[in-house]
């Protein structure tokens, strides 16, 4: 039961995006389309899980004074692996994610989890924590991408398959541009706040 908690806390209670407000940069930048968002989540998932496991494995050997540089090297190595892999097998996605792919290395969620969780807890717990946090991140980024893609193109198409056919003849291009990203996350956060205020009042 306790271990299940480690898994689910990242998804809802301590959602890295809406509760901890971490990892905003890739979140807003690549949430223009749902498939970009999915590609980014996959990258974050791999890096977060592997770096959390490795750091947790070596937590007794890493001297605490130089722990941050050690974490960064571990994370950067996994980011490089993801980069090379995507370049080889999904060149189009690699092209569209652009500089945001190498920038996973400075994603605060990953370093934050390494510092706050993996460097103190056993391997299996860190593994679950990483999976929960990545699911939380994926939910957030895909949710925002769904809103933005639906409003900016009037339809949703994932990897060429149309999920929702065109429902409006005049979509708003602004949602594709930077202001749309800020607006979407602002409104979603307000809705979450509204829900928790209602809950308190009851």
């Amino acid at each position: 039961m306790k271990q299940l908690d480690e898994l689910t806390k990242g998804v809802f209670k301590y959602n890295p995006i809406f509760y901890l407000v971490l990892g905003l940069c890739p979140l807003l930048a690549v949430s223009t389309r749902v498939d970009n968002a999915l590609g980014m989540s996959l990258g974050v998932f791999f890096v977060l899980v592997s770096s959390n496991v490795i750091i947790s494995l070596f937590r007794h050997w890493i001297p605490s004074q130089v722990r941050i540089p050690c974490f960064i090297v571990v994370i950067a190595s996994f980011v490089t692996i993801v980069e090379l892999f995507m370049h080889g097998y999904a060149p189009e996605l690699h092209e569209r994610l652009g500089i945001y792919l190498p920038l996973i290395v400075v994603n605060c969620i990953i370093l934050g989890r390494a510092e706050a969780f993996a460097s103190k807890k056993p391997v299996f717990d860190s593994f679950l924590d990483a999976i929960g946090m990545s699911i939380g991140f994926t939910l957030g980024i895909v949710g925002i991408a769904l809103c933005r893609e639906a409003l900016s193109t009037g339809k949703i198409a994932i990897f060429g398959y149309t999920i929702i056919p065109t429902f409006t003849p005049s979509p708003s291009v602004m949602m594709l541009l930077p202001p749309g990203a800020f607006l979407t996350i602002g409104v979603i956060m307000a809705l979450i706040n509204y829900r928790s205020i209602r809950k308190e009042g009851r």
Partner: peptide, 21 residues
């Protein structure tokens, strides 16, 4: 109340970004 602090900051950022567009 539900817009206080961060949500309104994001909305302001959206307007700022719109101006920079």
């Amino acid at each position: 109340r539900s817009f206080q602090d961060l949500p309104i900051a994001f909305i302001s950022a959206a307007l700022l970004a719109l101006a920079f567009m």
